[in-house]
Design a protein around this nucleic acid. Structure first.
Lengths: 213, 213, 213, 213
DNA sequence: CTGTAATCGAGACGGTACGTCACGTCTTTAC
DNA sequence: GTAAAGACGTGACGTACCGTCTCGATTACAG
């Protein structure tokens, strides 16, 4: 989302709140129909029933717009309580895979990530609106597993942070690669296999002193 | 690679062989300087000292050209013999990470992958010239580990194939995500942690009947 | 001038009288700095410290606004009494040339005349606020010359009217063409030559029965 | 006309000669239908069956394009041989008035003159392609009158040049003002009156030592 | 040798989208 | 109800690349 608290926007006609939603919805629609490379801002504006200038007043370009449009897709991600760490992970990975399977996500997400390799502000925007919320789920999951006694409480906070980052890169990376590069569905069977390997690797590594590396 | 066997290439002036190399090199140069989105075929042609027509005679568009240009980067990947499965994996992952750290790879690879979500021919081209050669390294590594006795010979070929695919998605996905999304270096420390988790996960899973899932 | 008698201006905040003057002055300032084609109503409003709405409430567009702004420049024209017809003409032509030499007049006047070729209301506005006051000077000059005995009283009113029109087109046209197209100054020397030719032509024509053509 | 002798345009596809003519014709058509201010280059390109880029490759903007389009209208001006100076002048003034009466000339000419008050290059272009050819007609007319013995050969070249400039400003200015500002037709009757005044003024002035002013 | 034919660099061509600007209107709050 | 402020839909701007085409000028191989 673009920041929405200007200094003193007291006077003048206020920006239409409906326009924002219409534009983001139109962006997703266009991503489905046309894909990233054939999506044009003029077309999005038309679909949203909005003038091009209105769109440019709110977003500085295609990249930022698509980040916001795709980010909303991930808002529905939540950590289910399925009773065990393994089941919780499987659940959230399946949700993640389901979102990534949607064409508007496929089409847009990798493209903006590719663009972000040369645009720090864009990468920061992606991190803030897409990546960090996902990483929070990993943290929540760990906390819940610790409460259940499935995982020991962390002792070294820094090492724990590194482990979370590793888990996150492995999980998100594997699902994305499976979906986009291998072009195979990340279905229940695959997710179960993947989760098993991941959990065994982590718990074995933990018991064999992963942090001591 | 582009097809190089026209129907009746009997007569007429032959295509310049030097032009191909110059164009691919110019493409990588432009990727470094401009990135994917600002790379234009006209500019590549100019850099290569070649007319635009010459470029279009050989490649059908930006996507195909960049796939070929990036694929050459991965030609240097090879399976080192470091004496143990873990060390071999670490070595090849480090090589992979080193290539991915280069701006011409970062910029171009994810972009064409993003494009390939809506272009089957492009995805097939990426698979053939970039992905499959990498997967062959995994197969070679497994064969070598089996010869060493570190891994048992596979019994169920189909299940073995699924496992290779899983490994590949996990490895490539994790490195890519670490590099591009988290924007952190996949350095030796990270690779060692990652390899440890992966190997423990796989061997524990194997001994606990992963294939029985 | 714009109409200034709304139907029921009874209640509500009255229109600011100062705004009108500020807008016209800002218009002339913008004409000097930017010229006709780059003058924008938004910029004029800003210069005048006025909202765009206020400007549009008073003028219907750029053309009308500039006509009014330029018309005020010609208010300073007056018929000097230099003692002879020739000297009077020279005096008034010099005044006219001096106004036309100012950039706000140059820039704006010809532009609105050009626009008026396709806008009858605009031409009428120009005539009423710019042309007719000038033509009155010619009439005054003739009357004064007749009083002096330099010219005979007109006998045929219609023919006299045609002659005034002819004089007016010749005088105004020549000065404008000299200033804008030839881009040479209509200075004292030129005005003296021009006046001489004009007067000799008219008096000779009169004595040789111009009306008899 | 734009200059058409580049340094070494040897290679590459040559510019379409037909496009130039089509664009200029389309410009005049648009001037008639829409007038100067509503004429857009995109519309002209469409009318000419040409891409906008093709138009911009040849002309730098609306002003230059319209100057060239209008200049072609004046190509048909020529000095008729009607047997006497007065008749010759009347003939050429009538031709000039006839061209100015056409809507494409009315609409465009004054507008570019207005623009030229802030654009020296544009004024020079107007002079070279529109004004100077007309002035040549005045010179030809004088030469013919001298050959006939109607006018004495000039003695002082500089004074003669000033006289030609004065005549030209008076003639062109009067016709333009009559047509555009007064919005009355410069018909035969008017032209005869005007020519009579002009010629009497000039010959009387000559005999009364105009050059001595 | 001499055609014939596909190549080469160059650059104009018809398009499409860009991101910006000004238009004239509308919608707010403040006076 | 008018004021300032500024968002709105509209439409043209001038530019950049696209992928195709038309040039004259090289090459190679075939006869």
């Amino acid at each position: 989302m673009q920041s929405r608290t200007p200094a003193t926007p007291r006077t003048g006609r206020p920006r239409s709140a409906a326009a924002d939603a219409a534009i983001l919805a139109a962006t997703r629609e266009a991503l489905v129909e046309l894909g990233w490379s054939k999506l044009t801002l003029g077309d999005v504006a038309t679909r949203a029933g909005v003038a091009k200038t209105t769109l440019y007043r709110r977003w500085s370009g295609k990249n930022e717009l698509v980040v916001d449009a795709v980010a909303e897709l991930f808002d529905e991600l939540e950590l289910p309580d399925r009773g065990s760490l393994a089941a919780d992970i499987e659940g959230v990975v399946l949700q993640f895979a389901a979102i990534l399977a949607r064409p508007e996500a496929k089409s847009g997400l990798m493209a903006v990530v590719a663009e972000s390799t040369r645009d720090d502000a864009l990468r920061e925007r992606i991190r803030a609106s897409i990546v960090d919320p996902q990483k929070d789920l990993v943290l929540d999951g760990r906390a819940r597993a610790q409460a259940r006694g499935e995982l020991p409480p962390e002792t070294d906070p820094e090492e724990a942070s590194r482990t979370v980052d590793l888990i996150f890169d492995v999980v998100a990376g594997a699902v994305v690669h499976r979906t986009l590069v291998s072009a195979e569905p990340a279905d229940e069977e695959w997710v179960r296999s993947f989760t098993k390997v991941l959990l065994l690797g982590l718990t074995s590594a933990g018991s064999s002193n992963l942090s001591g590396i």
